[in-house]
Amino acid sequence: MNTEKNFIISKKVDHSANISSLYFSKKENNFGDFIAGQYVTIYIPELGIPEGKSYSISSAPHENEFVITIKKMGLFSNYLCDLSAGDTVSMSDPYGFFYPDEDGRGALVCIAGGIGITPFRSIILDELKKKSKRNIFLYYSSKTKDDLVFFEDFKNIADTYKNVHLFFHITGERIPQNPFFIQGRISPQNILKNYEQEIANSEFLLCGSIGFVKDMWKGLKNNGIPEFNIYTESFY
């Protein structure tokens, strides 16, 4: 249902030439509640396109600002990345079901391809805010080290919380030896070797391109993960 409202951008942060975050002050914009992992649908009637496009929320519900992080991929996202503080965006209420079970106790395994990282910043910060004792694994695949978004955020989180484990996979350039970086693609088989003991109760959240999510979903399922423990969100 179309329930969009106009919101004013309070700040814009460019993470790289192609990726930007738009910040919205919760107080000034009267934002409602949302669940970490949800998305909003943005409408840009100025472009003459009636359909909206959906973007995951990258901020956590407890944070003061509401943030969406966008990669330039076409007309719509280019337009959004070129906006500035003070500009207005027409957005739906938050929606979606891409979030872990509230009562989940096994490992939380987050697997991100490229800009698919955005909901995981929200989900992981939210888990930690709730003082979750779950082991949280983040596998984040990026073509280059410079394309990694939230790298410092995640590094600080892992330094503070011993139950958070990071694996940054770099697929498009050679990288020097480093405790955080792994050369090459994410392999579901290798992921599963990391925590055989916890597999029965683990939840696997996958976010990325359609092809990335499909491959990971098949890889996990073919290696014995029940499909109802695998949650997916794809961008298109």
Binding site: K214, K218, E227, I230, Y231, T232, Y236
Partner: peptide, 22 residues
């Protein structure tokens, strides 16, 4: 379980869909 059904699961049973129709 029905609440956790995914597009991937349905597409797998359909023997695939064009990506642009995801």
């Amino acid at each position: 379980n029905a609440k956790k059904l995914t597009a991937e699961s349905i597409i797998d049973r359909l023997d695939g869909l064009p990506e642009r129709k995801y």
